[in-house]
Design a protein around this nucleic acid. Structure first.
Length: 362
DNA sequence: AAGCCGTGGCG
DNA sequence: TCGCCAAGGCT
């Protein structure tokens, strides 16, 4: 085991080298202010940080643009309809974030006068803001010297101090190291510089040590083990599940319409619009009883979708026969033409695509 | 506290 | 193709 407590006289050097590098190489992002300039609007920092939880920058761009246009501040978002916010979030994943985003905006308006509290301790009490996000907002929006630790920072620091302890056991050591090297001057730029470094040069595979501003301070590079760190515990194998979804059409006033349901507020795809389904608990052979007797046509093919802890193979059955509405699960008729605006999560977008293709082949 | 919770890009 | 991974939080 290597001692992880960084020596203080080196800590300042690390921040200085990293910030100098950041001054030249910082990416310009819509939610970011240029290095060394006043911080961005805290609302935009908060919104971007929540969107960026476990999510790549590339995936966030469009959603950040859409949200700031629709809801430019806390007051606007707090006043929004839940359904509109959930639909706007559709496709970005981890839908509890959207529910907590609304809860948080409403708490900020109701309990904080429409402005975020300015310390990471207070920020961490709000819905959807955990240790990482609280520290990131505190540092980036309010200049607090807070230890910002995400997966990028964990990798950079595990290498910098050659921490051999596998994750997640190494988290306390890593956090202590981050606290030791975080400067009181420009802590927000420092945090973003660390994350940029982890997202670019200090990548999981094939780290570019020769270009790294911290190469002369990096214990893993000195030992030639950068690519092997951080160590991680093996993950469990994913389960494979089978499911059935039901595509129910009728002829509406000026278009065909589809029956959509809203999923329960918690659990998989919680709170999102969806096709009626069987709970994905079909037997091995995929057999599953329809919600009501009808002229069901079971489509060829299936939708393959991978979630965090299982893979799903979803089959689709369609019917366009007249339906006794009292048989339908709670839901609403949705015009086929406007299906894009229903805010279906990706699994059901794929299912809809399959169903539409099948219906139009007739 | 370990399991639950999406999605898309990458090699 | 397929496993890994990402600016994590909640319970």
């Amino acid at each position: 085991m290597v001692a992880v407590q960084p020596r203080t006289q080196y800590s300042g050097d690390i921040a200085k080298l990293l910030l100098a590098h950041y001054d030249r190489h910082a990416r310009a992002l819509p939610w970011r202010s240029p290095p060394g300039t006043p911080p961005p609007d805290p609302y935009r920092v908060w919104l971007s940080e929540v969107m960026l939880q476990q999510t790549t920058v590339a995936a966030v761009f469009g959603y950040f643009e859409k949200f700031t246009k629709l809801w430019p501040d806390f007051a606007a978002l707090a006043a929004a309809d839940d359904a509109d916010v959930m639909a706007a979030w559709a496709g970005l994943g981890y839908y509890s974030r959207a529910r907590n985003l609304l809860k948080c905006a409403r708490a900020v308006v109701a309990e904080h006068g429409g402005q975020l509290p300015k310390t990471s301790v207070e920020l961490g009490k709000l819905p959807g803001i955990g240790p990482y996000t609280a520290a990131a907002i505190g540092a980036i929006a309010f200049g607090e010297r807070a230890a910002v630790v995400d997966a990028n920072v964990e990798r950079v620091v595990a290498r910098l101090f050659a921490i051999q302890t596998p994750l997640p056991a190494a988290k306390p050591e890593i956090r202590a190291a981050v606290e030791a090297i975080t400067p009181s001057d420009r802590p927000g730029d420092f945090a973003q510089a660390m994350m940029d470094l982890g997202a670019s040069l200090c990548s999981v595979r094939d780290p570019q040590c020769l270009l790294c501003p911290l190469q002369s301070h990096c214990a893993a590079r000195a030992a030639g083990i950068a690519e092997q760190l951080p160590q991680k515990l093996a993950k469990k194998a994913k389960l494979q599940r089978l499911g059935m979804a039901w595509w129910i059409e009728r002829e509406g006033t000026d278009d065909r319409e589809i029956w959509l349901v809203r999923r329960p507020p918690h659990g998989m795809l919680g709170g999102m619009r969806a096709l009626p389904d069987d709970g994905w608990k079909a037997r091995e052979d995929g057999d599953s009883k329809p919600p009501f007797p009808a002229d069901w046509r079971y489509l060829e093919g299936e939708v393959a979708h991978v979630f965090t802890h299982f893979s799903l193979s979803l089959r689709i059955a369609v019917t366009a026969a007249p339906v006794d509405e009292s048989c339908l699960p709670d839901g609403e008729w949705w015009p086929l033409k406007r299906l894009d605006s229903a805010g279906l999560p990706t699994l059901f977008s794929k299912a809809a695509k399959l169903a539409i293709r099948a219906m139009y082949q007739d």
